[in-house]
Design a protein around this nucleic acid. Structure first.
Lengths: 161, 161
DNA sequence: CTGATTGCAAACACTTTGCAGCAGA
DNA sequence: TCTGCTGCAAAGTGTTTGCAATCAG
């Protein structure tokens, strides 16, 4: 009884961790290239969703995008979800899981804050980035015979008085 | 438009990160003490759920416990969820989020593997622990004026050939 | 005895999906 | 034209909750 190796039911969506193929190339061009490569189409809805995501700073949920898009011409929730998946696969977004309710996204082209410090007191999320950490993670992967493809770190802390 | 500080809708459930109050004290005693302190009751169902969790090695989901418990005398899914919350609050379990579907738990008293290396190829989860990492995380928290209360790290990697 | 607990089923919240009509390339 | 795309509503999935009966302390 009881196994010691868990295998996730779904293939993990790896969070690209910076250094991707898009340091300065505009996200829109990356997206179009990705879509073309997959024989998918660049529609006005997809353009609007990408635009809304790019306007966001920091983390956002699918629902926040839906709300943002209500002002400009209305996109259905289903399309937002479908497009977020494509944006993720194109390496433009990173998907983050803080709890078992909704997931959050972050534009990878924006800044380089890939890690999160969450205040236990009020749920505030502070984004940061540490090169020292990245190096250590590479090291750890190597020790286990892996090559790092991405990571997700949530630090929880209480305000030091 | 667009805020840059996300505030999670629910207060985060902080994942106690080792060094808690229970290096060798039996989990059952910890749980009874916790329950008494909260004026809650130690019922046969709660005992069975704790027992099933302790028998598990590594990560498990709520559903896995429900299945484990079918053999011994049946506990309802609702009670399993309710009890998992208490076990978490008592510091006996850690809750882990790999995706937006279900959450996983891990007994904190068991080993000290608090971090996860996920194989992108097959979804396998390898548990590990790094003291060097813990120290670095403390450092990072300090830099931001926080005191570390826990953390969650998911490393994604591809098998290095 | 009294308030906490249980199982059940219904409710929830977020996400995914089937389908008929629409529209890029 | 020929796929792929969209919106809608329905279905899914893991988790939570209201309630009446039950039980621990």
């Amino acid at each position: 009884m009881s196994r010691s190796t868990l295998v996730l039911p779904e293939r993990p969506k790896l969070p690209a961790s910076g250094g991707g193929p898009m340091p300065f190339e505009p996200a829109c061009a990356i997206f179009r290239r990705y879509l073309r490569g997959q024989k998918l189409k660049f529609t006005p809805e997809r353009a609007m969703i990408l635009d809304a995501a790019l306007r966001r700073e920091g983390l956002f949920s699918a629902d926040m995008l839906v709300v943002d898009l209500r002002s400009a011409g209305r996109v259905s929730r289903a399309t937002v979800y479908r497009t977020l998946t494509h944006l993720h696969d194109a390496g433009i977004l990173k998907q983050v899981f803080f709890d078992n309710r909704q997931s959050y996204f972050e534009v990878l082209t924006h800044g380089q804050h890939n890690d999160y410090l969450i205040s236990v007191e009020d749920g505030r999320v502070i984004e940061f980035r540490s090169d020292k950490l990245a190096r250590l993670l590479d090291e750890i992967c190597q020790e286990h015979g892996f090559k790092r493809a991405g990571h997700q770190l949530h630090l929880y802390g209480t305000q030091a008085e």
